[in-house]
Nucleic acid binder design. Structure first.
Length: 290
DNA sequence: CACTTGACCTGTCCGC
DNA sequence: TGCGGACAGGTCAAGT
C-alpha cells in the first residue's frame, strides 16, 4: 500500500505531532510484528521522548531520546494514526471505515504518551512490522544496506537514474522500477503513472528504451511523486495519514485504477494487464511495446 | 544471475 | 444470502 509519497505524508504528519512527547506505555498482542522483549520496551521505549521522525525508502524511523529508534514498515495495509483525545470519526464520516474509533480490530500496537495522546499502528493484513533498534544500528539492517537512492534527493541526477536502470538492461522496465535496490520507494501506483508519463510499455526491456525516454521517465517520476506528496498520497483502500485522513492523489492519476476510462492524452481506453506479477495499467496507444 | 512464483494475512468484491 | 475464487498498494525466500 503505502509507497514513498504515502510514507512521506505520514512522516510529515508525525513530525508535526510527536517530537517532545514522552512514551508512557506500549501495548500489543502481536509478537511477530513487534518482536522486541518486554524488557527492551521497558528500558528503551517507556519514558523515552520522541526526538525526530525520519523516512528512508518506505520505512519510517521514530528516533527516541534513549538513542533507540522505532523502525516501522507499513507494507500493504499499515496505518500509523495519532489521536490526542478520544474524538473519532463517527459513522457516516468518509474516514469512518478507514480509521474511525481507535483502537479497532486491526490495531496491532498502541503507544500512549504521558499527556494521554496515543499512536495506533493498525494493519489489517499483518504484513507490516515495527521494531525497536539502537539508532546507530538501523543503517546496518540488511534492507538499508541494499536499498537504492532516494528519487527525490537533491543530489540524485537523471544521469545516475539512467545508469542504475541500465545495469538491468534485459529486465522489463516496470520490474526494475519496483526493485527497491535500484531506486527506493517506488511501488505499483507510481511505476504505472511514471511509465504512462514517459510513454513506455511496462514490459519493455530497459536496453530497448531510448535514453531520451529514460530522461522523461526520471522527470515524470519526480513530478508524480512530488504531486502525490502535495496531495497527501493515494488512498485506494486503506491508506490514511497520521491524522486518519485520506490522500487525494488518485483524483489526478492518469492510469492507475482507471481501466475502462479514456486516456487523458489521446482518449484511448485504459487497459489493465499483469506485469511482473502485479496489476498494471496502461494506455495501449501511448505505451506501445517495442 | 535474473526472472517468476509462492508465502505472509485479512478483507472485499464478483460470479454462480 | 451463501460460498468459492480472485485480487489488493510490499517484500522475501525459494524455485526455474
Amino acid at each position: 500500500m503505502p509507497e514513498l509519497p504515502e510514507v512521506e505524508t505520514v512522516r510529515i504528519g508525525l513530525q508535526g505531532l510527536l517530537p517532545g512527547r514522552t512514551v508512557a506505555s506500549e501495548t500489543h498482542d502481536w509478537p511477530k510484528g513487534f518482536p522486541n522483549s518486554p524488557a527492551d520496551v521497558a528500558e528503551f521505549l517507556v519514558s523515552a521522548k520522541v526526538t525526530v521522525v525520519r523516512r528512508r525508502a518506505k520505512v519510517l524511523l521514530i528516533d527516541l531520546s534513549t538513542n533507540y529508534s522505532l523502525v516501522i514498515h507499513l507494507k500493504m495495509t499499515g496505518q500509523l494514526v495519532f489521536r490526542s483525545d478520544d474524538a473519532a470519526f463517527g459513522a457516516g464520516h468518509p474516514n469512518a471505515s478507514l480509521a474511525g474509533n481507535l483502537p479497532d480490530k486491526s490495531t496491532r500496537v498502541t503507544l500512549e504518551f504521558t499527556d494521554g495522546s496515543r499512536l495506533f499502528f493498525n494493519d489489517q493484513r499483518k504484513f507490516g512490522w515495527m521494531r525497536l533498534l539502537p539508532t546507530p544500528e538501523v543503517e546496518n539492517l540488511d534492507f538499508f544496506q541494499k536499498v537504492g537512492p532516494e528519487p527525490l534527493a537533491a543530489n540524485f541526477t537523471a544521469a545516475q537514474f539512467i545508469e542504475r536502470l541500465q545495469r538491468r538492461k534485459k529486465s522489463g522496465i516496470k520490474a526494475v522500477l519496483l526493485d527497491q535496490t535500484v531506486i527506493a520507494g517506488i511501488g505499483n501506483i507510481y511505476a504505472d503513472e511514471s511509465l504512462w508519463a514517459a510513454k513506455i510499455h511496462p514490459e519493455t526491456a530497459v536496453q530497448n528504451v531510448p535514453a531520451a525516454k529514460l530522461q522523461t521517465l526520471f522527470t515524470g517520476l519526480q513530478a508524480v511523486l512530488r504531486l502525490s506528496i502535495q496531495k497527501g498520497g493515494s488512498t485506494d483502500r486503506n491508506y490514511v495519514d497520521a491524522e486518519g485522513k485520506r490522500g487525494s492523489y488518485l483524483t489526478f492519476a492518469n492510469v492507475f485504477r482507471r481501466e475502462g476510462l479514456g486516456c487523458s492524452r489521446c482518449g484511448t481506453i485504459i487497459i489493465k494487464l499483469r506485469v511482473a506479477g502485479r496489476g498494471t495499467h496502461i494506455c495501449p496507444y501511448c505505451q506501445q511495446k517495442r
